[in-house]
Design a protein around this nucleic acid. Structure first.
Lengths: 151, 151
DNA sequence: TCCATATCGATGCATTTGCATCTATATGGA
DNA sequence: TCCATATAGATGCAAATGCATCGATATGGA
């Protein structure tokens, strides 16, 4: 089967996207480590659980939200639970599953991570592009999402 | 010390960038696996070495180009050498170092990876944004590079 | 020349990730 | 009701990664 070739513009944009996103992640992870804080993935999960409120979330609901594999979620939740940042509750109408809820100490950790994470975003994105440029960037990136959904 | 808060625009752009880049990498890695091909990192190294030509590159020169840690480069090169895709040559004027050169079979592998990788770029980027939009995206992303260099 | 320090690249060990599979419960059709 | 199949989540094992450190060579100053 014939494979297509990408346009030079597509290749350049791709290369920049790959390189920049990795640099930004690396810089942010470094800042978190320097502050004695856990990795970004912990923030992602704590953030989703905080948004979900008292009802919590089922582990399988986290898979798509934080872009982790099923076993990744399973193990990350085990670590978070061991640290007392989340709690697992049995769910009444499905004996296979559980509900995961953020604890007060989890909310506190989320806040502490955010002081570093947010500062990193401000420095690495906010300082480099104007509000308009950031909106343009966000709009273009939205068109690359999968599945492609409006906005 | 006081930490800054990022603007809402910066946060949105950041979130989109993180999510989209991970989705694109995942889709591309999946395509490579489906084709029985090695990961993207192998392509990155083979690409740099192919560009470098017969002179090859020193391992430490690859560190910044492919954004891997020193030990990551060391081990990846060991795997590539074991597969016969690169060869290590002693370098005359520095007894500590070596020069790494791509082999014919390495060039062939690079080509084979590109048929899948390039098609993935075409599908995931080229099909979704116009040439002008891709240029805009690339320009905005360039402003986020570290260190910030012109373009 | 000698020694302290820096650089290049490799590696032991612990942690993390990926893959495959497992157990347990749920669901739907015969 | 019973059984085949599907889904939720956990886990054993192998591979990859991160961290610290090592051995070897280079370099620069006393």
């Amino acid at each position: 089967m014939a494979k297509r070739s990408p346009s030079p513009e597509a290749v350049t944009a791709w290369a920049r996207l790959m390189r920049v996103s990795r640099q930004l992640v690396e810089k942010t992870e470094d800042a978190l480590k320097a502050g004695g804080l856990p990795p970004l993935a912990w923030y992602d999960v704590l953030h989703e659980l905080a948004e979900a409120g008292e009802g919590g979330l089922r582990p399988f609901e986290l898979i798509d939200r934080v872009l982790l594999a099923q076993y990744g979620v399973s193990r990350l939740l085990a670590r978070l639970e061991a640290e007392g940042l989340v709690e697992k509750l049995p769910v009444s109408d499905d004996g296979r599953g559980q509900t995961v809820r953020i604890t007060p100490s989890g909310r506190d950790m989320r806040r502490r991570i955010w002081t570093v994470y947010g500062a990193s975003i401000a420095e690495l994105m906010g300082d480099r592009l104007s509000a308009d440029e950031l909106k343009t960037l966000a709009t273009l990136l939205a068109r690359l999402r999968h599945p492609p959904i409006g906005n």
